[in-house]
Design a binder for these strands. Sequence first.
DNA 1: GCAAAAGTGTTTGGTCTACACCCATGA
DNA 2: TCATGGGTGTAGACCAAACACTTTTGC
Lengths: 231, 231
Amino acid sequence: MSTLNPTYTDDIFHLSIPVLAVDIVLFTLYRDELCVVLVPGRNEWAKGRLTLPGGIIGRGETLDEAADRILERDTNISWVYKEQLYTFSGKNRDDRWDVISCSYYTLVGAQAFLSRIDLTRVSLMPYTEVSRDTVAYDHADIIAYAYQRLKWKMEYTNVVKSILPERFTLRELQEVYETIFQKEFDKRNFRKKILSLDMLIETAEWDKENSKRPAKLYTFSDTELKIIGIL
Amino acid sequence: MSTLNPTYTDDIFHLSIPVLAVDIVLFTLYRDELCVVLVPGRNEWAKGRLTLPGGIIGRGETLDEAADRILERDTNISWVYKEQLYTFSGKNRDDRWDVISCSYYTLVGAQAFLSRIDLTRVSLMPYTEVSRDTVAYDHADIIAYAYQRLKWKMEYTNVVKSILPERFTLRELQEVYETIFQKEFDKRNFRKKILSLDMLIETAEWDKENSKRPAKLYTFSDTELKIIGIL
DNA sequence: GCAAAAGTGTTTGGTCTACACCCATGA
DNA sequence: TCATGGGTGTAGACCAAACACTTTTGC
């Protein structure tokens, strides 16, 4: 029996203690929509349905390590901002097993995401289509909770940087907020607010991508997650 | 081997998966100080030191049920507001075992607390005295985290009601906030703010306890936890 | 020169803070 | 009548929201 990475064929499901799994809610923006990464269910209770990437934690592993391992296994993504969300244990979580799920959520930019992922193994579902009918177990609840937490983090930290490229325009930044919050913000107030936070540094470069007046490019002043009040 | 309530003598510590425990941070106010309930360490690695009330979760139990069971076992307290805090899994949490701890915190009024607890089995430690030297494992870290979360919940919910008697004066309410936040608030601003939230109902009764001008007694309008912005 | 997106300030209302005095009661 | 804590209002600073026009560029 391997120490790391126990498999579903172990006899761990017949013990007097529950099994602890780690499930990951990976958010990304794709075609101006907030999407979640899902994988096909691998056991008989989730066959033909989509689930969150997840796995059983091994002895000697921390939860963070297990989250990294599972994320890398399913998406090839190896370093991202991630945060533990909640540990779910409702009796009806799983049709048969007594599995407790420690969930994480993470946020990845579409570029980084698409360049690493194998879309034959994972799929993207728009957040608006997530429901108990479209994803297995209680994973729709976990995703809904992750979405709340994400919005909330975006209101008072610079976590949005994990979804943006190194340099970006204020308009792009605003669009990320608008997509995730599903509401529009006033351009002037948004810029004033963001700039007043000293979260961004103005670069000397300009965005010449589109054929209109070029926009200044900005970058984040902090590489680490920082708590600030945004919205 | 019992299904609920596995004991430390089971062989569960030799498995390929980690063991999941539930630890509880119970806050109460005692002599105008924020205190935490601790119990004597029961295994050889925590002998002679104090730990949080905790135990191994059993198969068939949810985390909330395990938290209730452990709380009742150690303190006779059977219904209180409680909230899952975080699931800790650092490698150095425990000298020997690979135990993952799902922690809860809760807040109990001194009256309810003292009437139910057996002080020969548990002890109270002022929050200011909690440190890695005074409590075992990584429990000081868990308590510090719980304290942050508690303050934060008190800023935007009516959670404070779990520590107050059914009827109370505005002064008492303010004192609870001052004790927990370890800072003083302006009386007029505090009253204005609290009353503007429609969180309280003014009763027809007066507090005649102290021998000065009687104060109006208030009660909470919501019995459930409610999100509001307080401070 | 025109279409398209970038960029920019001011006014207004609400909220937070600081601050000092009178009132009701029991002793 | 006095000591003690209960109860109240206002002015200034700050922050959030609403709102419209000018600038730069490519075509």
